[in-house]
Write a protein that binds this DNA or RNA. Structure first.
Lengths: 253, 253
DNA sequence: ACCTGAACACCGTTCAAGT
DNA sequence: ACCTGAACACCGTTCAAGT
């Protein structure tokens, strides 16, 4: 027994994935190597291959683990564990007792979806390395399936046909799960050209120059970095929800 | 002279980047290694470091090369090369002679931007490996600056303030340059569970099952794969443009 | 069933050296 | 100024072997 107490708890897929998330959180995704992961678990690198097929499968698993965290954040836990509300006698929201989709005129799908998306975003802000992982082919795992079942339920209950809801989910893209691909990240904007060349260049970019001079002055609230990502994200999701609501109204006439 | 003819043309940054694009087009981005690139250029791997700082700089350069191709596709070439229309005596579109932004009520910013975005998309469809590159920090190069100057010009001429145009560009995100991050790419959807487990799972996903059964049947036009990406992209950009037009109208009252 | 040790092929990158 | 050769540190992964 005393020997047993010293014996280390055996590895499991769950422990491997949890340790991988810890490494990525602490040191970034590039630091997540098979060797580093093994070391953190007090094990040799090759042992990992007993629990994950290879590195790609590891990253897929990590992605699904993060989505699982998102799922937990948007799923109200019921009093009894294991009962997730879908198992009661009542039909699921947006479904009649016979299983046909049914909309609910008093239901604010827009606000509900917005809240869900922002909650997902809050989780991703704790794992800023995760978004690129979620777009990898193969990263769409079980947790994502349940997350999007929820999104779909909101849309259907809000009056979207399955067809339109399908388009809407594509239109939302990564925004449906709380992030948007930023194309910018200027990072190290170190102009290594001479002032003269720079001025000539600026002359060819009148609108960009105009925008920059206006933006940097008139919004004292956005002094963290250049653009407030949270505010931009909310503007973007709202514009998209506006467009989707217009599409919904068009079809439900 | 006869010896000179045999001498190979010296490397240049441009030739390195062009060869890199060729490799990615032919064999995918993972095949783009420093060693493979050198071999294609008939040179030793270390020679590349004379023209690009390191691999990250190479990828940044490749990204800007692709954006350059996009820029060429959306920029109508004038009769005289070198004159790009901004150098005439007329003010740039969307600017008064004094340089202040001015909108043009008869200008259809929505259709113009839509056309530009779809043209950019057409280029990216030829380089399907490129989108992930464009989202890397540091990938926003000179070509992207000029591309977005053009986007901004369209918005301003269409009646957007610089501030609103700035939000709009963030809202468009990667869509502004012709792609949207697909979260799906089911790829190898090989359910390795038993039928019984699968059925139980399906019972928990009523909307997803409902949508799948409806989608797969009712649209005979979308038989290439599962979702027609081009159609979904267009639906998405249209929904977003609708939302942005609503925002523009709100501010210009 | 679970873990290890040694080895392999392949990376990006350094450095000093060639012309 | 431009390119090379040899070497280094580090990957993911194989295979046969241990318990």
């Amino acid at each position: 027994m005393s020997v047993e107490a010293k014996k280390r708890v055996p590895l499991s897929r769950e422990r491997v994935l949890a340790a991988a998330v810890e490494i990525a959180d602490a040191e970034g995704i590039d630091a997540l190597t098979m060797r580093a992961l093994a070391e953190r678990l007090g094990v040799e690198a090759m042992s990992l291959y007993y629990h994950v097929a290879n590195k790609a499968a590891l990253l897929d698993g990590v992605a699904d683990a993060v989505v699982g965290e998102i799922l937990a954040a948007v799923t109200p836990t019921s009093a009894k564990d294991g009962a997730d509300g879908e198992e009661s006698g009542d039909p699921a929201p947006g479904l009649t007792a016979s299983g046909a989709p049914s909309s609910d005129p008093s239901f604010d799908w827009r606000a509900t979806l917005r809240t869900r998306v922002l909650a997902a975003r809050a989780v991703l802000l704790r794992h800023p390395w995760a978004p690129p992982l979620l777009t990898r082919p193969g990263a769409f795992g079980p947790a994502a399936v349940f997350y999007f079942e929820g999104v779909l339920a909101i849309l259907v209950r809000g009056g979207f046909s399955y067809d339109l809801a399908h388009h809407a989910i594509h239109a939302l893209g990564s925004r449906a799960i709380g992030f948007s691909q930023e194309l910018f990240t200027p990072g190290d904007a170190t102009p290594d050209e001479s002032d003269e060349v720079l001025e000539e260049l600026a002359a060819q970019l009148p609108h960009l120059m105009g925008m920059l001079s206006e933006i940097s002055h008139d919004d004292p609230a956005s002094n963290l970095g250049w653009c407030d990502d949270q505010a931009e994200f909310e503007f973007g999701i709202d514009a998209l929800l506006d467009g989707l609501e217009a599409a919904r109204r068009r079809t439900s006439v």
